[in-house]
Each structure stands twice: as structure tokens, then as C-alpha cells.
Design a protein around this nucleic acid. Structure first.
Lengths: 256, 256
DNA sequence: CATGCATCATACTCGTGGGTAACCATCCTA
DNA sequence: TAGGATGGTTACCCACGAGTATGATGCATG
């Protein structure tokens, strides 16, 4: 009964650099570049653009599937089926499942980075800038990529990817802390421990990804607004301020 | 990530029992029942208790592994190896992997339910009762079962288990909302949307499980305290401070 | 001693799913 | 019009891990 488990020396993994289709990734530079009506390379460029579109469709399909069934419960066959193509086609656009998750993560977190950038240009007390960021943050978490952004576990990723993701997350975290500190300095934010406060804010918003479904009656923006009003005023009633604010969260204009 | 098939690394694996982390765990049904010191069934009862202890050790080991590597990245072989037994031994104490997760979940959520029970006996404004609950909540999330409690995805579980878990989670959620409403009535809590506020509170606390590791300098209780103070007073400075206490956690550290 | 139960190990089965090899179709370019 | 890039398919490989069949061991009992 020779049923010894095959322990073939080193299976497969010999192929260094499987990095298949060299993808620029995350850049769509030559979009509205120049007309060049009938250059002989026009077709080539169009193909390239097509490819990018398809690639993004793959990413979105993956995000959708992860969103519904979780990373581990989603097979690449599922994703392929959702796109009505075969599995190798998916592999034609993305090198492996891990990268798929990573791309979803980046797609989710990018708007938040943009929000920080935008806030940096605002001329307003730090609390207002923080609020602006949190608004975008909440919407990002409620977006189709929210799940991937929030639930991408480092445990599921190679050390390299995990490192990238940690760095991006840390950037966001540090940005929130910085705004908190600035707010404490310009007097627009109550004295607090920036680290813990940032954790609390981010946690509450991140958690949206666990319960929010597109079908919900509230939009991501509305939820973000509601959360912000909670954070802003806190649970304790304010004795000598206008407490006449409407109780519902829909009162975006609660700003004092 | 090939799991090395370790063999023979455990010499004379006869007895010695696993770590056996003691800990009666609050469930000693027939403890103070009757003396019967030398009943012929005494041995039998002792075996039963031993079994219970071992079973709990399995659960703890599972929680530990899930905590570190995630549910899907933990094989039952891993858990067995951590206990220095074989896989069928694990199956001897628990029927399948799903149940293992479920048990961890219950172990994590039980203290929170207890906290609600306790709070119900308190004679204090609702805000104080809520704070008491949140304190326990935060500690539970930071506990060894926190991961399982918070990250047990319904996607990973059969509909039946998923239903149980959802029910338990909903119970907690409703409890928080109720306290919020009570607080709004007795005037100890600022007017707010109880649903959204409960989501924000639970989210912030749940998220602790994502970043907290036992090794951290802060204990679960300290973190819970810090969060509570954030929620309590909010970000906006209070003009006529009725002092919600000094700024907690003086670890200001403006470095970086 | 024999019987039965409790406990645990060895050694398997088997479905699933990530990833690949090989091959095919079409269009662009030389 | 050949030859290659591009985009896609079918059919496979195979590691992994959940779960199990079978049986060994030890201990209490009758």
C-alpha cells in the first residue's frame, strides 16, 4: 500500500516573479491627454484603456463578493462567475487573490487620503476640518469597498502586503491624531488623549462596514453625519448651551 | 504556508495532561450539592469534572489561535498541536470547528450580559448605568475571547448558529439603546438618536479587538475608561464645564 | 479475568479552491 | 498574409484541511 503522501521536493513555487501582466495600478494618467484622432497607436491606447476598465470591473466584482460572503468564503470561481468569465480570465487581470484584496483595500482608502488632503487646504478650526474628514471617512466605509478596507486582515496577507496596508492605515490614524492635537491647540476641541480618541472615532466609523448594507434607508453620508453629531456633543447634556437642537440626526446644521 | 507535519516531537505522550488552566469558570453545578466523599460514583464525577476542564482548555486554545491567526487560517490541527494532542482528541470534546467558534463567542459575550443584569440593579441615573455596562463591554472585547465575540462573521457559520449569534448581539444592542432612551428621559443623557448612538458606542468598543493585544501597556479596563470619557464629554469644549473629570490619560505626548 | 467505558492516536477519505498548462480566437502590425 | 500580441477557454494539478474509521490503551467494575 504505497500511500505515502507525496512530498515532492519543492512544488511549483520555483517560478520567481510570477508578477504577470505588469500593471501600472492605481493610475489612469493618459486619460484626457491629447486628441490625436487617427494616430496609428490610437487602437493600442484604446485597448489599454479597455484593459484598465476590465481590470477595475474585476476589482469591483471582487469587492462585491467579499462584501457579501467574506474573503475566505469567496472563491475566484465565484468572482469569475459573477463576471461571466472563466477563472483564468480573472488571473489575466490580477496576479492572485491576495492582490485582489489589496486593490480593493486601496480603492477603499484612497478617498480618505484625498479627504485629508482636501482638509489641509481648509481655512477653519481643526474641529471643522476633522469633521470634514470624518464625513468622507464614514462614506468610504459605507461604500462598496468599505468591507475590504476595514476587514482586510493582515493575517490573510503576505508580510509585504500586510506591511503596505499597515502603513496606509497608520497614515490615516496619524492624520486623525494630528487634527485632534491641532484642535486642542486652537481651542476647538476638548482636551483629550489623541491616541485613544482617534481609536474611538475610527472604531465607530469602521464598524459601519459590519452592519451597513446598501439597501439601508440611510446613506453613508447620513450615517456619518449622525455619528459626528454624537462625537461632537457627547452623551452628557450641555447645561448652558442651546439644547434645543432637534434630536434626530438629520439636523446636519447642529454646528454651534 | 505549509504546516510542518511534526511527528514524534512529544516523547512518552502518555499522560501529563495539557496545561489545564484550572479556572473553575463559574459553572460548578454540583459543587455544593452533597458531601458524599466516598460514594462509588465519586470517581465518575471527578472524571466528568476533568472532562469539563479539558473541554474548556480546548475552547481557550481555539480562542487563542483564532485571535492570532483568524478563524479561517487556523486549522484544527493547529489547535490540537497547541494542546499537544491529536486532532481527534479535539473532536472528542467539541463536535466541529463551527461549534468551537460559537463557544468562544458565547464565552466572550456572557460577561456583557452579566453586566446588563448587574446594571439593572443599580440605583443611579441611566448614564451611570450605561457607563458601567460599557466598562464591562470594553473589558470583554479586550479579553481573550474578544476576537471571537466581535469578529465571528455570520458568513462563517451555519444559519442556525448565525441566528443564535445574531440574537445575542441584538440583545446587547437593544440593551444599550434602552439605556440611552432611559437616560434621555431621566435627563442624564443628551438628546440623540438611540440607534445611531448605540452603533457608534458599540463600534468604537468592538474595534478594540482589532488593535488590542494583551501585551499592550494599557489594560482593557483602562481603555474602556478612556473611551467612556471621550463619549461622555464629546469633542466640543464645554463652555461652563461641570467637569466630567480631568482629561483622562495624560499621555499627551505631542511628539511625532 | 472479562467486560465495558473513556480517552486518545494513526492513518486515512474527500471536497474545495488556488493556481497553472496548454490551447484557441481575434485583431493589429509589419 | 505571416506573425505576434491580446484576451480568453477547457481541463487539469495538488495542497490543504475538515472530518472519520479503526483500533490501541488504561481504568473501573462485576
Amino acid at each position: 500500500m504505497p500511500t505515502i503522501r507525496r512530498k515532492s521536493a519543492s512544488p511549483a513555487r520555483g517560478k520567481a516573479a510570477p508578477d504577470a501582466p505588469r500593471e501600472g495600478s492605481s493610475t489612469c494618467p493618459s486619460a484626457a491627454r491629447a486628441p490625436l484622432r487617427d494616430s496609428p497607436w490610437r487602437a493600442s491606447r484604446e485597448r489599454l484603456r479597455d484593459r484598465q476598465i476590465k481590470r477595475e470591473a474585476v476589482i469591483r466584482a471582487a469587492a462585491h463578493a467579499f462584501n457579501r460572503k467574506g474573503y475566505h468564503n469567496t472563491s475566484l470561481d465565484d468572482i469569475a462567475a459573477a463576471l461571466e468569465v472563466s477563472k483564468p480570465t480573472v488571473y489575466y487581470y490580477v496576479s492572485n487573490k491576495e492582490q485582489l484584496l489589496f486593490e480593493c483595500f486601496v480603492a477603499g482608502i484612497e478617498p480618505i487620503r484625498a479627504a485629508f488632503h482636501e482638509a489641509r487646504l481648509m481655512k477653519a478650526p481643526a474641529r471643522e476640518r476633522l469633521k470634514a474628514v470624518l464625513r468622507h471617512y464614514g462614506q468610504a466605509v459605507a461604500s462598496e469597498f468599505g468591507w475590504c478596507m476595514v476587514r482586510a486582515e493582515d493575517q490573510d496577507l503576505s508580510p509585504a502586503m500586510s506591511g503596505h496596508i499597515k502603513a496606509l492605515k497608520s497614515e490615516i490614524d496619524q492624520g486623525v491624531r494630528r487634527l485632534l492635537r491641532e484642535g486642542m491647540q486652537d481651542g476647538s476641541i476638548h482636551a483629550c488623549d489623541p491616541k485613544m480618541t482617534a481609536f474611538a472615532l475610527a472604531g465607530a466609523l469602521n464598524w459601519i462596514a459590519h452592519w451597513y448594507r446598501e439597501s439601508q434607508s440611510l446613506s453613508g453620508a447620513q450615517i456619518a453625519e449622525a455619528f459626528i453629531s454624537v462625537f461632537e456633543s457627547g452623551l452628557t447634556p450641555r447645561p448652558c448651551t442651546e439644547s434645543a437642537g432637534p434630536p434626530r440626526h438629520v439636523s446636519a446644521r447642529l454646528a454651534r
